[in-house]
Structures are given as structure tokens and as C-alpha cells.
Design a protein around this nucleic acid. Structure first.
Lengths: 340, 340
DNA sequence: TATATTTTTGTAATCGATTGCACTAATTTA
DNA sequence: TAAATTAGTGCAATCGATTACAAAAATATA
């Protein structure tokens, strides 16, 4: 068994104090070049590895950050996490992951245990049901930087990185209008959730800017499931005046819509254009690839990490909150492309 | 700013020693009920939170585990990680994630820093290119349990949880035979990688068991990309004797195959059946859903976690390695289902 | 009541690294 | 050469919790 080598082992071997060893290893300028060399050489020989726990206890910094998301295996979240990891790893940070399963109670627990483990920072996308933010303010109270991504809450002093959902909604709708669509229906998610509300607003604004009066009946709350997309189409088609386009806040519902429309013999994109949101991996693999708004998750993760780093490094400055809003990207594919 | 409360603060307030406080908090039976109550009550009042770093330094256990995968945002890996997290979180463990980007050098670094951070255990799926295992043996030398999942290496003393890739290959091929296919081609991955080799072996065995002589030309090395599937089909169709089924070790290549076959006007599943591997989320969403072998990633993660827990808890027993082999599940869908 | 036991609590070392302060040795200055 | 700096090291406390051992308090026994 490899016994752990400590600075005391080195100090004994060299008959110098542990303090000197520590200083030599940390490139402290007060140490003579000769001693430093000797210590470094010996440390290498003895296969010394710094005990990060001891160091963390002393310094109060663990070099760990926590990421809290609803589910890690959702394509969007795992990509954001990847971005965070890739940006932070070169700086010596490790990423700890936590899942809330969209439940505030778990969120509360996770924040607690993360703060307890003394993470140097927290990244989070709040659960859909989260209303109260007192558990989030704890991080602030303990002086642990917290950065929201995608799903944020308004808490003074906390930074966030989100995409411009309004613009995403606007882009998608505008694109549909340019394709010649005039009766555009929108599948929104729960309008109490900020991101869905914003996408909806963007949709409305684009219509108005183009002289189209939005029809109340064309805004449906549809949750993020294939089946919901199917039944939403059925509902819409009960009326005489049918839409000539669907802009869905969810790729899954968009897919359901496409399946149902095809079922009914409706041609896409000739008769009806369909646009989704999130740019889920499957959208581009479909036989009829689906146009979708990309949320640039990888970039979002990287930028969130940068915001955290700025906050940590420049601790001089009083904690300044930073609100980054990324531009969404529309990927036009066949489900809405009439210019082929 | 909330000052951190320590057991010393409690001991001062109650005028008892920190040792007593510590014992009371840890339910040590040597403490009188009265004192315990008092301490617990006071601790709650003062909002005491144990410093896990100090405890970790003392005990040598951090309650952190590391997971090393090629990329976290691959559907399969993120699902395994989810399984690990969900199984371990109730036991108080946190999960640290690391990516290798399929590069052994990163793998080496990651193991090093994880051991350095004193994780209590490591889960890993090795990079495709990994040959030498000396970096992995370091964990063993430091007495840190390491559990392989999916992609393993033979290292004495290390446990693993994998699926029965041979059986997966066998199942898929057998299914195709039952559909009446007789000329089944196989897209394998790199045959130097164990999992691909095993799937290939399973394919061969199923053919033989059913009296079909495998054709060398029908075993192609195709990497896990849509485009590769397309060109593989082109290659196969240059010969007169065409296959009547494709069993691909990759869902992406299977998808490419389907696209190209359709392009050529070939009917699926009537003329050619197609089966993929991994049960990627997109397979079930396709207009023509793709039959695929599921690797039960969530379960794999959970079981890997259980193996780790057994190893940690029953530290009495000498480290016994455990090799778990999970059964793959075939999800039959329209790309290979002629019995509709 | 005096002594033996058992409970309960306190003292101090430990985990490994860091760092302010003090001290010695080496160098510079007068 | 003596005094004043400067450079290089060591001592010991610290981060917060745990725990063997010692000691004190409470209880049981004679």
C-alpha cells in the first residue's frame, strides 16, 4: 500500500522544518533557490501529493463547484454542464452535480449540502415550481457565488446567463412569416415560467410588427410531450379556420404536431410550417428535419463559468451581479423551409 | 454576513468542552441525555453546520466520488451518471464529473486529481484508445475503490458493470433472422474495442446457430456516424448480392443506412430490416422508428453505485472484485418489424 | 460513611498544510 | 571592524472536528 507522503515526511528526510517545505513547494520568494530545488526534487522522488483537504480546510477554498439542475440526462442540461466543466477544469475546479427532479424541496436540500461541503460556487437552473427564493439567498448570505443559467430568479446580487427567449420566439415567428405564413399558432409551455412567457411575448411581438393580429385561440398551453403536440393539433383542427404554421416552445410537441399533421394528410412545409424550440438532437435526424431555436447550451455553460471566475478572482470589487443574455440561433430545416 | 458556527462556539456558549459537543452531535452513547439535548438544541438555535472539510481531513473520507466518462453530454453517459447520483445521493455522497474527450492523457490526469481530492471512489468508462492500465492501478494502490462501467479493462481487484454485448449482438441478429432475413450485414465499430468485438461475436454466433454462414464481406467496420452509415450502404450495394438486413452497432450509422436505403427506393422493413444499438432517444421518435438494443444506462449506474457501496461498507472483507453483466433489452420497432 | 464502579466530561493530540512572528545567518553599509 | 540590513528558517498557532486517555462526578456496594 502506498503510504501517503506529507510535507512532514519530506521535512524529516531533509532535516528542515515543514514550514520551509511548504514554502518551497509554494514558490515562496523567501526561500533560497538552493533549498527550493532540493525540496522540489525530493518531493518528486518521494512522490509527494498535496492533500487538498488539508489545504482546503486551511484556506477555506475547496476548488469544487456545484451544479444544480432538474435532471442531468436531459440533453440541454448535460450540455451546459459539459460547458461548465470544460471551462473550469483548466482552472483546477471540479464539478459536483445535483438533481432536483423539478422539486423545490430537493433544491433546498441540495443547496444546503453544497454550502456545507464548502463549494466555491454554485450554478443552478431552478425547478419549474420554485417560487420562494429564501434557500437561494442562503448562498448569498454565506458569500458563495451563485450563477443562474437558463431558468433564473430575480435575486439581487446574483448573476445569470440565459438566452433571449423573447428574441427566440420572435425569430421563429418572423421566419414563419417570411415563409408566407399568416395564421401562426403557438404552443407555449406554462406561462408562469418565465422562459415560456418570454417566448410567447416574442411570438406576439413578431406578429404585431408584421401587421398580423394574434388570435387568442392560436395560443395554446401545451406541455413538452409528443402526445401533447398531437392532441393540440387535434384541438386546433376542430375549427374551420386552420393555422398555416405552428411555432412550438418544445421540440417534442412540435414532433407530435408533425406526426399528427402527416397523419391527417397535411403537407409540411407546403400546407403548414412547423418550428420547434431547443434544437434537441433528434430534430436534425428526422426524415423531415425540424426547424428549431438553438439555446447554445455549451456556450451558456462556458459563459456561466466565466462569470463565476470573474466573481471569484476579482473579489476585490464588491460582488457585482452580471446578467448575460445570449442570442438564440434559428436552425432552419425542412419542416419550415419552402425555398427548396 | 453569516459567520460560520463551530463546535467551539457552542462549547463556549454552554461552558462545556468542544469534545463533549462533538460527542453529543455524533450521538455518542457516553454522553448524558441531558447534555445531548442541550447541545442539539443550542446547535439548532445557533444554526450550526458541520464543516465537512474538517471532518473529511480527520476521517479520511470525503463522501465524494468521481465519475470519469468520455463526454458527459452523451445520452448514454449522462443517464449512467444520473443512475449513480440517484443511488448515491441518499447515502450522502456527492458526484464529481470528469471528461476525457476519449483521450488517455486526460484520463491519467483525471484519475490523479481525483485521488488527490481524496474521493472515496471512482467510476469510469475508459477512453477508446486506452491500452495501458497503470494509471488505473494507482487507484488500487491507494486503496480507492474503482468500478468500471460499460467500457472496462481487465485489472485484477477492480469491479465492473457492463452489459452483455455478446448477447445484445445475438438478440438483434436472432430477431432479424426471425423476421425472415437471411443475408444480414453488420456494421461493427472498432473491433479492438471490447464492446464492439463482443457484439460482433454475438452476431456471428446467432448466424451459425441458425445455420447461416457468415459472409466476410458483410462485416464492415463503420464508425458511429450518420455519414458512415450512408457510405457503408453505398459500399455494400456495389455488389450483386445485397443484404436483406443491417445490424448496426451504432444507432447513428443505422440511421444513415435507413436514409440511404430510402434514397435508393428500398423499402424498410419489407426489403431490408435495420436494427441499431444503444437505443438513443431519437430512435423512437423517427417517422420510421428504429429497432435498437437498449443498454439500460440508468440501471447500470445504479448497480455500479451499489457495487461501490458494498465495497465501502463491507470493508471487513478483503476487496473482492465483482463483475456484473446486465442483460440488454431489444426494443423492436418498425424498422425491422414485418409483423404489423 | 468509606470505597468501588460506572458515567460523564475534559485535556490534548491528531489529520496536513499554511503563515505571522521571531530568530539566526549572511550581507551591506559606515 | 562594528552596526545595520536583508535573507532564509524555524516555532507554534490555526483551520474544525474527532478520539484515546485521564480525570472528575455520580452512583452503587459494602
Amino acid at each position: 500500500m502506498a503510504e501517503k507522503v506529507t510535507i512532514y515526511d519530506i521535512s524529516k528526510k531533509l532535516k528542515i522544518s515543514a514550514a520551509t517545505v511548504s514554502r518551497a513547494l509554494n514558490d515562496n520568494p523567501k526561500i533560497s533557490a538552493k533549498t527550493r530545488e532540493l525540496v522540489l526534487k525530493t518531493a518528486a522522488e518521494m512522490n509527494y501529493k498535496q492533500n487538498r483537504l488539508a489545504q482546503a480546510l486551511k484556506s477555506g477554498r475547496t476548488n469544487n463547484v456545484g451544479v444544480i439542475v432538474p435532471y442531468i440526462n436531459r440533453s440541454f442540461f448535460s450540455s451546459v454542464i459539459r460547458g461548465i466543466e470544460e471551462e473550469l477544469s483548466p482552472h483546477g475546479y471540479h464539478v459536483i452535480i445535483c438533481q432536483t427532479h423539478e422539486d423545490v424541496n430537493n433544491e433546498i436540500k441540495q443547496i444546503d449540502t453544497l454550502l456545507n461541503t464548502q463549494v466555491d460556487g454554485i450554478f443552478m437552473s431552478v425547478a419549474k415550481t420554485t417560487q420562494d427564493t429564501s434557500h437561494i439567498k442562503k448562498a448569498l448570505a454565506e458569500n458563495t457565488p451563485l450563477v443562474f443559467f437558463d431558468r433564473k430568479k430575480e435575486v439581487k446580487g446574483l448573476s445569470s446567463v440565459v438566452i433571449d427567449d423573447f428574441r427566440g420566439g420572435y425569430l421563429a415567428t418572423e421566419h414563419l412569416i417570411k415563409q408566407g405564413c399568416k395564421k401562426i399558432a403557438h404552443f407555449s409551455g406554462d406561462l408562469n415560467v418565465e422562459i415560456y412567457k418570454n417566448r410567447h411575448q416574442g411570438y406576439l411581438k413578431a406578429l404585431k410588427d408584421n401587421g398580423i393580429t394574434p388570435l387568442k385561440r392560436f395560443s395554446l398551453q401545451v406541455n413538452s410531450k409528443l402526445e401533447s403536440g398531437i392532441s393540440a393539433i387535434k384541438d386546433l383542427w376542430e375549427f374551420d379556420e386552420k393555422p398555416d404554421a405552428i411555432f412550438s416552445s418544445s421540440d417534442y410537441a412540435a414532433l407530435g404536431a408533425i406526426q399528427e399533421l402527416k397523419q391527417m394528410g397535411i403537407k409540411i412545409p407546403e400546407d403548414v410550417c412547423v418550428v420547434g424550440f431547443s434544437n434537441e438532437p433528434f430534430t436534425k435526424y428526422m426524415e423531415l428535419p425540424i426547424t428549431s431555436v438553438d439555446q447554445t447550451p455549451l456556450e451558456m455553460g462556458k459563459i456561466a463559468a466565466q462569470v463565476f471566475l470573474e466573481q471569484i478572482e476579482g473579489s476585490q470589487t464588491l460582488t457585482v451581479e452580471k446578467q448575460v443574455i445570449l442570442a438564440p440561433k434559428l436552425f432552419v430545416r425542412n419542416s419550415s423551409n419552402r425555398n427548396l
